[in-house]
Design a protein around this nucleic acid. Sequence first.
DNA 1: AACTGGTACAACCGCAACTTA
DNA 2: TTAAGTTGCGGTTGTACCAGT
Length: 224
Amino acid sequence: MRKPCCEKKGGMNKGAWTKQEDQKLVDYIHKHGEGCWRSLPQAAGLLRCGKSCRLRWVNYLRPDLKRGNFGEDEEDLIIRLHALLGNRWSLIAGRLPGRTDNEVKNHWNTHLRRKLMQMGIDPNNHRPRPAVSGLNKSLGSNSSSTCKPENSQEEEEEEEEEEEEEEEAGSLLQCSSKPKSATSFLPDLNLELTIGPPLIEEQRHLSHVESAQLSFSNFPTSVS
DNA sequence: AACTGGTACAACCGCAACTTA
DNA sequence: TTAAGTTGCGGTTGTACCAGT
């Protein structure tokens, strides 16, 4: 068995960071740059594990972070990207300059999820939810097949589609044909995407999302 | 003023992916 | 090739803050 990356030895600080700790971390990274998180704490004189240092830097101390409320355009983009990519927060955050995956994830869980639910949309799959209070009707539920109470066939279909969406997230991002899934549940979610040449594996995700954003930026925001 | 419930967000944890020897 | 080590991600938790009673 390998030992944990952050050995839980005593004397390690946990919980909220102090200003002094922040300062030490910032100073160290300014001098030496990011990376080597495992050895950083000792080198910087911090009683934290490397993981904790990385998280603090990435989510809070990085100078290029945009703090404050999410704009409507940002929220809309998150919703669209989530429909496409699912809970891939780092990818989603990558398309939101100055935002971190943690921030996006928190915002999704506290604001956007609820928002979608209030609209009668299942935040997990971005489809109209099975009628609970008649909300779906007003949303013009076009999903004759999506609102089955039991999760038999539909669930399988969903899984299949989710897989497909992942695959298509990039390639489809460009297809002149609309991605069948997300748009069909969210009529106002325009995912018209274009396709480029086949991508090498390591570029797939990024490229997909990049093209997604390019396309998104042309559309009016719709969820608010 | 004290209590309570809800919300927002920072931070932790476990695991998977990636890298290195 | 593979085992060990490191990094990054996503889910979850803890807690400070705020509004309502």
